[in-house]
Amino acid sequence: MTQATRIKITDVSKIYQSDTKTVEAVKNFSESVQDGEFVCVVGASGCGKTTLLWCLSGLHPATSGTVHIDGELLTKPLPDRIGMVFQDSNLLPWRTLMENIELPFQIKKKPVNRELVDELLEVAGLKGFENSYPGELSGGMKQRGSIVRALAQDPEVLLMDEPFGALDAFTREEMNLFLLKVWERTKKTIVFVTHSISEAIFLADRVWVMSPRPGRLSRIVDVDFPRPRHIDLQFEPKFIEILKSIREDVEGSKSGKGN
């Protein structure tokens, strides 16, 4: 396969400083993401996976090292090329679902791409809820709405920060299937941060395993289950085998460092 490199991360470190302490959240991280690839980042809490994602967004620049998007050095957010989805849906509660989806268009002063929005709403099963307020939607619907909001900008890269972390297990499975469906259709490049190893394996082409203090890339796992993937995949021996080995890594990195 000849694929273009979408995201190139070179020797990225991120140091947070407070009055009392210095935390090396990410240290010497180098990797790249290919066009249309689905990468999941897993690791124990505090391993810097969210920090890494924010470095990729251009919102929190790296302390040292560089991030290139399509060969261009990242120095600030790229509204037309990078979309972000957070753990909280972050739908503005005073706007209806449709008004929330229209918000980025308003900020960019661009006409709303009705066709794309319609299609995305259809896939997300949110048709008929355009005029509902976020308070009237379920957690899963809200999160699907926020994904629709991000995808309606047609970004090349989608950065997702534990987007399903706050949902219950069943909704989470549903959301995973929904995300795969959307991804297979749009072929976006996705970097997906999660603390659920099984979610990572289920979704990803590759899983980056990070270890904490300082946050480093400790291992890359290629996941080559055929697509489209079925939810029962998680009961297959090979899946469980990968799950176990990553789990040992994550556990080991926690206890090994002593805490």
């Binding site: 251009g58 919102l59 957010p77 979309g83 957070f86 909280d88 972050n90 503005l92 918000l103 900020i107």
Partner: peptide, 13 residues
């Protein structure tokens, strides 16, 4: 909410 501000910034607000 800091995330809402980040969201706005990510859209170039």
């Amino acid at each position: 909410n800091a995330e809402l501000i980040a969201l706005g910034k990510s859209y170039g607000a």
